[in-house]
Structure formats: structure tokens, C-alpha cells
Simulated assay, not measured.
Amino acid sequence: MAFATTDDGVRLFYESAGTGSAIIFVHEFGGSHWSWEPQLGYFSRRHRCVTYAARGYPPSDIPEDVEKYSQARAADDIIEVMSAAGIEKAHIVGLSMGGFACLHAAIRHPDRILSAVIAGAGYGAEKAHEEYFRGISEQVAKNFEAHGAESFAPIYAEGASRVQFQNKDPRGWKLFAERLGKHSSLGAANTMRGVQMRRPSLYDLKSELEMLDAPILVMVGDEDDHCIQPGVFLKKTITRCGLAVLPKAGHTLNLEEPELFNRMIAEFIAQVEAGSWSPRDPRANPSQIMRTN
């Protein structure tokens, strides 16, 4: 088993497959390193693929102090894993919590990032729902503590933006819920409080996002309601950003629609490596409806 040791002494488990330009996969709150199996099998044929378990997710360390968890720390942990694996630069792909971490990594470490896929990132970003999100996040943390991951996992896994996955692939969804039930209750609670509850709204990062030059692909499901408008905001704010909306899709995009997810990312990375993922043409003025002269 391979581990990266962070500058604050936390060991992060990671695994690697394939050769070629590197892709780092960063999991969501409800997943872990195992979440990316459909992507590792696909992309490792022509890329070096690395997936890891975030702090608080076995077999990585589970710090007891909630102050060991933060959005900045989650972003920096991506770079720590890259360095431990001997990777100088990489494409990074993240879902939900992992999508936020990838976006912050692109802001904080632009010299290490070739491109970033930001999928299903939006929860807590909407200004109108900030306080509600913090409150519900605290309740989720308490439920993990009070009931344990095994008991609470089936409830969490049947959220409004995950039933799409359950309906399309009941077997896959059941495996997702069972694996979620094996998470550390302490790690889940600390992650929810230290990372999810405290991260800044995307709208508060407008100036940093406007300066971001990395090629970005934002992906959202059209039934992942609280990610749609934040996704549009990212598209309009980041210079080299594309937006993909997957039809009849919820939050767990890489498992719910693996073929479409993989195909879109493969095309994105191919364009980035060909140097053709350019900023928006200035002639594509969003205030113009039709040209008259």
C-alpha cells in the first residue's frame, strides 16, 4: 500500500494505474478512492491514473481534531499526493467535495495543474441557501456520530440528487450505499464540519476565478438542482471554462453515467493536450442576440 505523508503529518492512501500524462481523481463526501473504478479502468489505458482516500477516509489517517480538516487543506492534499507519487503536473478530476478541492487546487497551485474537471460542485455555494446548508451539514455530522455510518448510509445515499442513480442502476447504488456504510463515522463528521460547512461560497471567489487560466470543464446533472446555477456562474466567470449538463442525471455523475462522463472528459483532456481548449472568442459577446451591422 502506498501512502503520502502531508506536511501536517497525515498519511493519505493512494493507488496508481497506467502510464502517460497523469490524471488525479478526487472523490466526493459519499465516496472514497473506490469511487473511481469505472474511470481507472477506462483512462489507465493511456494515462497514469491516481486515486486516493481523503483524510478521514480509511485506509488514510483519521485525525481526531476537526481543525485538521479544511477546504484549503483538501486542496493542498491533492498536491501532496502528486508529489509523493512523483508527479509534477497533472489533470485533476473531482466530484462534489472533490470538485471543490480541485477548483481550489487550481487557484492555489496553478503551476502544478494541467487542467481541472469540476463535477457536481455547488452545494452550499448559493448565497440564498448558505445558512441552510451549514445547518443541514451539522445535522448530517451529528447523524454519523449518533447512528454510525452503517445505519445512516442508506438514508444519506437516498438523497434527492442520488435517487437518479438508484433508479438507473439499483445494483451500483446498493454497492455505493454499502461502501458508504463502511466509512469512519468520526472521519465523516469531521469532514462535514471542517470542509463542507466552512468552505467559502463560489460566488465569494469571483476575483480569484476571473484570474484562473487553467482549462476547466464543469459538469452537472440537470436534476442536481443546487449545482446548476453555480455551474453556470463558473462558466461565465472562468476564462477557459466549458459547461456540460448531463440529461436526466443527478449528483453521482461518474457512477451514474460512467460512459458519458468518461467520454466527455477524454475529449476535454485531448483538446487540452492539443492546445485547443481556448478562452472564449471575444466575438461571442453574451450581450448580443443578433448581429445587425
Rank of each mutant, 00 (worst) to 15 (best):
A2M: 05
V10G: 07
E15W: 10
G18W: 06
A22F: 02
F25A: 04
V26A: 08
V26L: 05
E28N: 03
E37V: 10
E37S: 11
G41A: 11
A53R: 06
A53S: 15
Y57N: 07
P59Q: 10
P59I: 02
P63T: 08
E67V: 05
Q71S: 10
A74H: 12
D77S: 08
M82N: 12
V93F: 12
A101L: 08
C102V: 14
L103D: 05
H104A: 09
A105R: 02
R108K: 14
D111N: 01
G122F: 00
E126F: 09
E126K: 13
K142Y: 11
N143G: 14
E158A: 14
G159A: 06
S161C: 02
S161R: 00
R162M: 00
Q164M: 04
Q166V: 07
Q166G: 13
K168R: 15
K168C: 02
P170F: 00
K182V: 07
K182H: 06
S184I: 06
S185M: 04
A188Q: 07
A188V: 00
N190E: 04
M197H: 14
R199E: 05
S201Q: 12
S201R: 05
S207F: 14
E208Y: 08
L209C: 05
L212G: 10
P215E: 13
P215L: 07
E223F: 07
D225E: 03
F233V: 01
F233M: 01
R240T: 00
C241L: 09
A244C: 01
K248H: 13
E259L: 10
E259Q: 09
F261A: 10
A274I: 02
A274S: 05
G275I: 13
D281C: 02
N285A: 00
Q288T: 15
N293C: 08
